[in-house]
Amino acid sequence: MNQKTHSCQQKLRISRDALEVIQGKWRLPIVLALTFGNKRFGELQRDISDISPKMLSQELKALEENKIITRTLYDSMPVVVEYSLTPLGHSMKKLLDEILIWGAHFRKEVLKS
């Protein structure tokens, strides 16, 4: 196997790993919402109005398992649960910025046609 093939395969594995974490319709919007600060479940649901509670719960668990977000339980009455980005989640900021730039460009190009 030559160096180019090895490099290509390695990059493809890395890209699949990254996409596994951010795949789907909801994970990036959740992460983006959390870049504006820590949020409770209801706040996230209001920010992402078309996500069902069940789907939000599933996606939050997946993001937590992948160490992108953290869930903090406050011992109060009533119990308060808050979600926030981990340092790994914050490291996605540049990626999110690039996706937003490209998304705005894409939207403009599509609306032209």
Rank of each mutant, 00 (worst) to 15 (best):
P78Q: 07
L111Q: 13
E82R: 12
S52K: 11
L63F: 12
G24W: 03
L28G: 02
A104Q: 14
R27M: 02
V80G: 04
P53F: 06
S15G: 00
P29S: 05
T70I: 08
R13E: 15
S49Y: 09
P78I: 00
M55F: 04
L34N: 07
L63P: 07
V21M: 03
S84I: 00
L95E: 07
G42F: 06
G37M: 09
L12Y: 03
A18K: 07
Q9Y: 02
L19N: 09
I99C: 13
I48R: 04
G42Y: 07
A62W: 03
S15D: 00
V31N: 05
L19Q: 05
K67E: 15
V21A: 01
P53I: 02
N66E: 13
I69V: 15
L28N: 02
M92N: 03
S113M: 05
K4I: 11
K112T: 10
P78H: 07
R40I: 04
F36W: 03
E43L: 04
L95H: 09
E43Q: 15
R107S: 12
R27L: 01
F41P: 02
N66G: 10
H105M: 14
D75G: 08
H90M: 14
M55C: 08
S91R: 14
I99H: 02
M77S: 14
W26E: 02
L88P: 00
T86L: 05
M77V: 09
Y74E: 12
E65V: 10
L34H: 09
K39P: 02
G103Q: 12
H6C: 04
G24I: 00
E43W: 04
V80F: 04
I48T: 02
K67R: 12
S15Q: 03
L60N: 09
P78R: 10
